[in-house]
Design a binder for these strands. Structure first.
Lengths: 216, 216
DNA sequence: ACGTAGCGAATCGTTGAACAATCTGTCTAG
DNA sequence: CTAGACAGATTGTTCAACGATTCGCTACGT
């Protein structure tokens, strides 16, 4: 499945392994081991490494190899600093109520509702990421989109080290829906403020779960 | 010079060729031709391609090759949209007057003055880029830094197609110095507003030169 | 004349093996 | 116990080759 490029499939597989915690933060990822396990050439693995390094899911140290990044609380703060700059700004800049362009957001919210009903928290998590990426895409800025994709990828890295993501994801299902309601009504300023508080809460919750993890 | 990685030296060379206009926008860059001309392996060239694609200096189309991006006026607008979000925001967020951290900015301004006196406009241009990157680095955000690096790289792409960059660079030497004066005095709010107008003018000037180019 | 199908050349994607350069850890010598 | 040499492992880079895909060209049919 997912044809097109061997390097791409390898990078997808590695991405899964990382976000599912099989490759713990700080772990070294050897070229030959991955090449053997996935039955591809070393060169292809190297190309996949570059793809993932591009999204921040791996770090490349010259002559030393690639490693799963050790995410610190400073990184979490940095990611959220950018999110707080970008996301509310996008909502605020949405002058006209382009209602039909909110369709995608609506479907993502529905998806989150469904997954939440089934207590499938990882699906809720990915739906949440899709929501925020779709939100940013409303700005119509390609460069904002790639920045946001990077940030979300790094966030997946953070969630990989947290055991029970339920209390992190569950509240956001409701808040995403409320934000969408405000935007549908054309109340973009109010939505931006709401999203700002939302993101602050989210950062706080993640940092709390994170520092609790550090003490252990 | 700049040992350590063959791929890095190749990417630096390619970067020069692109920004100096030897590789025009839209041109296809073949793997084998570059490999032969620089005396390196195809694999190394591919690695260099990925590095440059990461900064937006090349675009990679599967099974088709890599190309020098065709920058449109929409791209210029997009780059400046992000700059207007990031740079004034950084200045505004500089709460305490960390005067000693402005030292680097000061030296860059001096460099620009010197280059301007010698009418070396490409040196003025790189000094200008250094100024804005150093400005953003004051925020202490790694992710903001890499975003800014990307944006500046793409901007080099734009300048490559403009013949006489003098009237684009020259006014900014003074404005950078004035902005620095405001920041040195702790007037960050005023500086942010100044920078906002500054960026708007810059975008306008580039777009003007750009559309004039398009008509020809 | 025009559009289309098919053929062939060129280029890319990937493989596999090989060698050089570098890092890491161990073991010895002082 | 520290410093330095040595060996093993891993990465960086090269080379040659083969299938896959794209592109331009020719030839054909309408």
């Amino acid at each position: 499945m997912s044809e097109g490029s061997a390097a791409r499939t390898v990078s997808n597989q590695l991405s899964e392994w990382i976000t599912e915690g099989q490759l713990p933060p700080g772990a070294k990822v050897s070229e030959t081991s991955v090449a053997q396990r996935l039955g591809v050439s070393r060169n292809t693995v190297r190309e996949a490494f570059r793809l993932l390094a591009h999204d921040g899911l791996l770090v490349h140290e010259f002559n030393r190899g690639v490693f799963v990044p050790l995410v610190t609380s400073a990184d979490v703060r940095d990611v959220y600093r950018l999110r707080r700059i970008i996301e509310p700004g996008v909502v605020r800049s949405l002058g006209r109520p382009d209602l039909h362009r909110l369709a995608r957001l609506r479907s993502v919210v529905a998806e989150a509702d469904e997954a939440s009903a089934e207590r499938d928290w990882v699906r809720v998590g990915t739906a949440n990421m899709h929501f925020h990426r779709s939100l940013v895409s409303l700005a119509g800025s390609p460069r904002l989109d790639v920045t946001m994709r990077r940030l979300m990828a790094e966030l997946r890295l953070v969630f990989a080290v947290i055991d029970d993501p339920r209390f992190l994801y569950e509240p956001f299902v409701r808040r995403n829906r409320e934000l969408l309601t405000m935007m549908s009504a054309g109340r973009f300023g109010e939505g931006a403020d709401y999203l700002e508080a939302y993101l602050a809460d989210s950062e706080g919750a993640i940092l709390a779960a994170f520092e609790e993890k550090e003490s252990a």
